[in-house]
Structure formats: C-alpha cells, structure tokens
Design a protein around this nucleic acid. Structure first.
Length: 200
DNA sequence: GTACGGATGCCCT
DNA sequence: GGGCATCCGTACG
C-alpha cells in the first residue's frame, strides 16, 4: 500500500528520514516497474540547515520545489552529471527534504541493469544517490511529481528494522556546512551491501 | 555575460 | 585510495 500523503506532512524530517528505512520505493516508466527497499537516507532540515539548498530561506528556480507541500519529488543535478532524488516533506513553505542514497533492489532487476549499463548484478547498481536515480529511471523531468502518482511512489510492506540495526551518522559530502556537517542526519542499515561507500 | 563550485561515481593504480 | 569527468545553478556585475 502507498504511504498516504499525511505521512509526508510530519514536520520532523529527521524522524521521517529514519522512518523511510525499509520502505519500498518504486517507479513505473513506460509500463516497467522498478524498485526496492530503502537502506540509506539523509535528512535536510530546511532553512536552518547549512547543508540544505534551502538554507537561509533561499528560493530559486531550482529550490522552489522544496518549498511545496510534502509528498513530492525533488530532483536536481549534481556535479553536472548525477541526478539526485529527494522526498519533499512537511507543509508548504517549510522546505524539508530527504535524500534517498541507496536501495536494495527487488523489482525490475533487468531494467535496472540495462539503465546502469551493467551485465551482472553488483551492489553498486543502487548504491549512492546518483546510482539510485539512474537505476530507477529518475531524472529532472519528474521533479515536483507527486508520490501519490502512478509514476513514482513509496510503499510500506511491513519491513522494519530496530534501532540497533540502523546507524545514525554525519552526512556525506557536506563539509561546507560547518557545524551542521556533524549532525547525525544520515541513516543506513548496518552491514547492508547496498549502502554507499562511507559505511563504517 | 561570466565565473565558480558542487548532497558523486567511476576507473585506474 | 586517489584523480578526474562534466555542466548546471547561482551570484554578481
């Protein structure tokens, strides 16, 4: 069952980021469904978070998606190469987002292999935010698309992890964020092979 | 108009 | 473990 819109309206983005671990993320593009369950996330806590694009209430053509009501996708380009998929959360005007950094693939393996130009299944197929987006066929043309749509959605299939099984550590690649770079806003399933590189 | 740097991943050693 | 591709978004003038 799809997570309802109300799930995304919670104003505690760090809690939600933890909650998304074990949820199933799917896309359906050209009739092909691909997806798996989320094993790594990062929370970006709105205008007070130096690591967030929306820090300082910065509204630009790119970041305006983050200011919309929760329950939609925020997709942007990083390093000129990689598309990044985020879940926008909280109410309109509060620009919270959760970066999906890794999933364990379960559905549409062949299509994901094709999109990643891979012959054989290896953990790096969906390890790291750029890889997740590419494997799922996510690009900027689904920016601001609703997670209630039939293109992109998240399901709860009853899979859950205990706090002992989940690590909470500082985020990756946000050294520019000063003290905020130290916040334990990155969550991942300990020992899961699909978790992206810095997994110690 | 132009300059600068980034929420990375891949390939090589 | 390190170098580097690659180009948009943003700020500033």
């Amino acid at each position: 069952m799809k997570l309802p819109e109300s799930f995304y309206l919670n104003s505690d983005v760090v809690h939600l980021s933890r909650s998304l671990i074990g949820k199933y993320l799917f896309t359906c593009i050209d009739g092909v469904t691909t997806g798996g369950y989320i094993v790594e996330t990062e929370a970006y806590n709105g205008i007070i978070d130096r690591a967030s694009h929306s820090f300082g209430n910065k509204i630009t053509p790119r970041t305006k998606t983050m200011f919309m009501q929760g329950g939609i996708a925020y997709v942007y380009l990083c390093y000129g190469i990689h598309e990044m998929f985020n879940v926008v959360t909280s109410v309109e005007g509060q620009p919270h987002a959760i970066l999906i950094r890794a999933i364990q693939p379960t559905d549409g393996l062949d299509e994901m292999l094709y999109r990643r130009n891979m012959i054989k299944l290896k953990p790096n197929i969906t390890s790291g935010p750029g890889s997740v987006a590419k494997a799922l066929g996510i690009s900027r043309n689904i920016n601001a698309v609703s997670l209630q749509s039939d293109v992109l959605w998240i399901e709860d299939r009853g899979l859950s992890f205990t706090d002992d099984e989940i690590a909470a550590v500082p985020r990756v690649g946000v050294d520019y964020a000063g003290d905020d770079a130290l916040l334990p806003y990155r969550f991942y399933v300990k020992g899961n092979p699909y978790v992206s590189k810095p997994n110690k």
